[in-house]
Simulated assay, not measured.
Amino acid sequence: TTATSNSITMSVTSTVTPSVSIALTSGTNPTCSGSAVTFTATPTNGGTTPAYQWKKGGTNITGATTSTYSYTPANGDAITCVLTSNATCASPTTATSNSIAMSVTSTVTPTVSIALTTGTNPTCSGSAVTFTATQTNGGASPTYQWKKGGINIAGATASTYSYTPANGDAITCDLTSDLSCASPTNATSNIINMTVNPLPLTAEITQTAVDVLTASVSGTSYQWYLNGALISGNTQSITVTQEGTYTVIVIDNNDCQSITSEGFEYTTTGIFVITEDNLIIYPNPSMDFFTIKYVSSLSGDLKISIINTLGETIYYKELMESNNSFTEKINLSNYAGGVYYITISDGDKTIQRKLIKL
């Protein structure tokens, strides 16, 4: 006799192979020292509750057992993740991810310093100067902003800055670095305080002897010119031997140069400069009255005139048939202080002296 058992229907599930990949989901690579990053693992055939173990350089990282891992990397770190699948028929049950090698750049601090590369400090009024900025850790294309007294100078965004300073100007430069790991990205330079000295007064040239020209302004040295060409002589008065147009520049103890004087036309005829023996002016300087006492070497009618530095005649008198001497008291109390010139002429020859009104 025979008997047949119950039937068992087999259910066969295909074998699956787990895998896992990791990617950087927060931060960058390369990154800067001190910057945190986050990795995320994406499993395939991991089952409902896969297990994770993150590794650095092949060594387990304590506590790093979730699908994400965050930390602050060091240069050269190699990060991987091992997945353990709980899927039925997973074979093998574990999988190792791709490796991500971290590139970490050290943080750098940018700096900038400025120096005067054209011109001087102190300088003279009207003289241009140039500043140059020298940077470290500024990157390939740093940006610059020059400032005067802490205020941005419009358009001054290159590594150099040229201008004509005023006394007391305080110049600085701000640098912005384009390096990825610059911290902070901005730096401010040292301060250069400008000292600007005024120019000496422009001199007037007078003839103080037959062959002597004198500049009216005192200075440390002088540059004399004849018809525009520099000639020898660096003192306030020079002896001249040639006719022509003379000009002078005054140089002071700050090495600043005055504006060139107006030309003085020197001629060897028609001018007779007197001495203390035949002309006395007193007091000189004076606040009001000048007494002029003259024993004439000229003959005939005499003309006395006083002019100011603008060439305007403020006093004029004629002495008819002079007896070769006279004394005049002249009141200049109503005129501004400054330099005036008295001229005595007989029509052929001229005598000239300077009056100083206080």
Rank of each mutant, 00 (worst) to 15 (best):
K147Q: 15
K147N: 11
G150K: 06
I151L: 14
I153N: 02
T157R: 08
A158R: 02
A158S: 15
Y161F: 14
S162L: 02
T164E: 10
P165G: 04
A166M: 05
N167L: 05
G168H: 07
D169N: 11
D169T: 13
A170K: 12
A170N: 10
T172H: 03
T176Y: 08
S177T: 13
L179G: 11
L179K: 08
L179W: 12
S180H: 00
C181A: 12
A182Y: 01
N186L: 15
T188Q: 07
T188A: 05
S189K: 04
N190D: 09
I191P: 11
I192G: 08
I192T: 12
N193M: 12
V196A: 04
P198Y: 09
P198N: 11
P198F: 02
L199I: 04
P200N: 12
L201P: 02
T202S: 06
T202C: 01
A203M: 01
A203Y: 01
A203Q: 02
E204I: 14
T208S: 14
V212M: 02
T214S: 06
A215Q: 08
S216Y: 04
Y222T: 08
W224V: 08
Y225H: 13
I231T: 12
S232G: 14
S232A: 15
T235I: 00
T235H: 03
Q236G: 06
Q236F: 04
Q236L: 03
S237G: 05
T239Y: 05
E243N: 07
G244R: 02
Y246P: 04
Y246D: 01
T247S: 04
V248I: 10
V250K: 02
I251G: 03
N253R: 13
D255S: 14
Q257C: 01
Q257I: 10
S258P: 02
I259Q: 13
T260W: 03
T260C: 11
G263P: 05
E265R: 00
T267Y: 13
T269S: 14
F272T: 12
V273R: 01
V273Y: 00
V273F: 00
T275R: 07
